[in-house]
Write a protein that binds this DNA or RNA. Structure first.
Lengths: 429, 429
DNA sequence: CTGTTAGCGCTTTCAA
DNA sequence: TTGAAAGCGCTAACAG
């Protein structure tokens, strides 16, 4: 009947086949898919019928070419190996879905080892820690700092550029940010878990490390600790910022500052821990730049014969699942990645559609609003219901829009959003 | 000078702008990029000149539409949260790069929580373990088995379908495999770290769990262990297969089989470990389905007052970085993910180009061939150099092609490739 | 409401 | 070698 029609290589049905089969013009078929309401009931039925008799599926690529832009939102993952990023991506994706937008996740990877010279020798670059590199034996060791010369994959960027997503969510620091400029300049971009590159007008959403550090100090001093050391400072921007936050807290509280330099790796934390354990007036507590380094500190302390947490309390950042393991049980700061992802997504949605109206798309039953505490949110979203502390980074901007709130502001502005992290207390401190 | 030309939304230069600027036809510009040799030197120069004066970059999408297929290879990641997959993806990507092919990584994610009913209630589905789900407090817990209803993201698949990659590498088990059938039927597909779906003609490359289990038994019996228990069996196909491998080894060696059911999570391993610790003739060694479960076993044993490894030796599978942490130090089977990724990539390349010739693409200086041991491979590839044990899975197929070997066989066949894993001995056993 | 007409940016015959 | 022209599959005016 219908039969072998166009679609050059593949035997796929094209819009023309459908039009022929239904006895209408291609234009109408197109319309029937895009805006069914504007097509008469009879034809619509005939078209839809023909379409699925032929197994027609509109061609993504052709559509994007013709329509001068696609309907999806691009999520660009800077590093596949950082588990925090995966969490953020998932949360963001869910948020998009809930609003009838759909997102495509693409990932960059490390450059070929024999490739061109490292772009950013010392800047592993992720927020949230966890630069990864090769350890001995080819085992991938998160946090190791060596040779972290990752570049934003040109091809991935090119794909996004040409597919013209409605917006782009960049998760983690992307080295060659210049490439992003290939996007149509009007394309909204939001960074998550990364500071947006200097000079960039794009907002970033990330955990508030200062607040996290304060939480840690409160907790530790509350337990009587007076000599609190910091392990970290190396390995990237995030590490540096956490170090600064530490110094600020120590100073503000009139406490001595004691720093053992380390990056995000366990090895590195181990060395720093050993160093600290040997000190004469030994610190009674240590704050590590991330869980992995904290675990290294624990190991070193144990090895040095210290009892944990009696002789040395250890706390860290990130609340990766490591921290929750029975044998580790690490007190740590939860950056609330899901929240970061969700807010970053909201931010982008707001920029795309300042009215904040929930999108048409597929009307989903459970479509909830961030402001209205959903009735029976499923477990994955449980932690949203708590009132969300929020603060803004950049100085100048007026503290305006509350996302999903009653009166969203027209111009989203470009201020960063800092998500208030949470203290997770476990045995280690 | 040149100025504001076409390219509707964006101000990007199109092939037409270049043609105009260079005073030639668009067809020639196209040719100048695709096959420079067939264009006269003068025009070529003029074209290339004009092109970069205008900052021209060919449009990916338009090209793929016009040329009936793209030049990239698609890497489809089934789960962002499984670190093993990231390793495989990286290795594969490098292999592709080395052969002048380039790959695009796209990821599926979990379905929205409030979405349609779970597809595969009990089938988390990844090879290599590490299904992830929400634990208490919204923390992402790798290995937890609950609600792992991930679906292969339709949009991602649609994108691949329409972009028409030359080939697709699927990493991990993808639930809705039917969607892949949307690809032009001639598109070669290779699965990595997953058994290819039944009835599928696509080969899969994965670690040989039977061999790994044998390695573990050899090691443990060599240390005098006679009562070796297994923790695992639940949570997915891989878990089941490892259980079977365990049973087979135990039987073959005339040893008693003792199984405590668990999935890939630490929690689950903990429970199983507690169970085993309480048994009367206690096992002297435990093999866990993966590192995480093994860590759970360690924790439970410790809690039960057992000394490790004297009272209970623990070994596992996967060699994630966890196993290498000082405080964990777990003897484990390294699935050699990088090798899996590399071989899967080779497999695909072979299918794409049976002559094994290195592709034209951008001619890269360092382009090495799998068969020719490259001179100074950088560290990331260090472990390739060792002679690679290899065996084949599927029964019927003739044992033919050695990848990258001297005489590659014309028809690649569809047999699975099993990569021989490696035993990593640490303190725990 | 519906058909027609132009393209999106690029590749590819096919002649010249 | 080079240019002209005809599409890839779809959308977007614009008339009717």
């Amino acid at each position: 009947m219908s039969g072998m029609s166009s679609a050059r290589g593949t035997g796929r049905a094209t819009i023309r086949d459908v039009a022929a089969e239904a006895g209408v013009s291609t234009g109408l078929v197109s319309l029937a898919f895009k805006d069914p309401a504007r097509v008469s009931a009879v034809r619509r039925a005939r078209i839809l019928d023909a379409a699925d008799r032929l197994g027609y599926r509109p061609n993504f690529v052709a559509r994007s070419l013709a329509a001068d832009g696609s309907s999806f939102i691009g999520i660009l993952l800077s590093d596949l190996h950082n588990p925090l990023f995966a969490e953020i991506a998932d949360a963001a994706r869910q948020e998009f879905d809930a609003h009838g937008s759909y997102a495509l996740i693409a990932s960059a990877t490390k450059a070929r080892p024999e490739g061109r010279a490292p772009e950013n020798p010392e800047e592993g670059g992720q927020a949230g820690s966890g630069a990864s590199a090769r350890g001995p034996g080819g085992l991938r060791v998160p946090g190791a700092t060596g040779g972290a010369d990752r570049i934003a994959d040109e091809q991935v960027i090119a794909m996004f550029r040409d597919l013209r997503p409605r917006g782009v969510l960049v998760i983690g620091t992307i080295a060659d940010t210049a490439l992003l400029s290939g996007l149509p300049s009007a394309t909204p971009v939001v960074y998550a878990s990364a500071v947006s590159p200097e000079g960039s007008a794009h907002p970033s959403v990330r955990a508030d490390d200062d607040a996290g550090m304060a939480l840690l100090f409160d907790h530790l001093t509350g337990r009587g600790h007076q000599r609190i050391a910091f392990v970290g400072g190396a390995g990237g921007e995030v590490s540096r910022l956490r170090l600064e936050a530490y110094l600020a807290q120590a100073e503000a509280r009139g406490m001595p500052a004691l720093v053992a330099r380390a990056d995000f790796s366990e090895q590195s934390g181990y060395r720093a821990g050993a160093e600290l354990a040997g000190l004469d007036p030994r610190p009674t507590a240590v704050i590590a730049v991330n869980d992995l380094a904290g675990i290294g500190v624990q190991a070193a302390a144990e090895q040095a014969g210290l009892r944990l947490p009696a002789d040395l309390a250890v706390a860290a950042f990130d609340n990766t699942y490591l921290a929750g393991l029975h044998r580790i049980s690490l007190t740590t700061i939860d950056p609330r990645n899901a929240e970061v992802g969700r807010r970053a997504a909201s931010r982008l949605l707001l920029a795309l559609d300042p009215d904040g109206a929930r999108h048409a798309g597929l009307p989903r039953d459970g479509a909830r609003n961030a402001s209205a505490p959903g009735a029976g949110d499923s477990d994955a979203l449980r932690d949203v219901s708590s009132p969300i502390g929020e603060s803004r980074g950049a100085a100048s901007a007026p503290r305006s829009a509350r996302f999903g709130g009653a009166h969203a502001v027209a111009s989203p502005g470009t201020e960063d959003v800092l998500v208030r992290p949470e203290l997770i207390v476990r045995d280690s401190a």
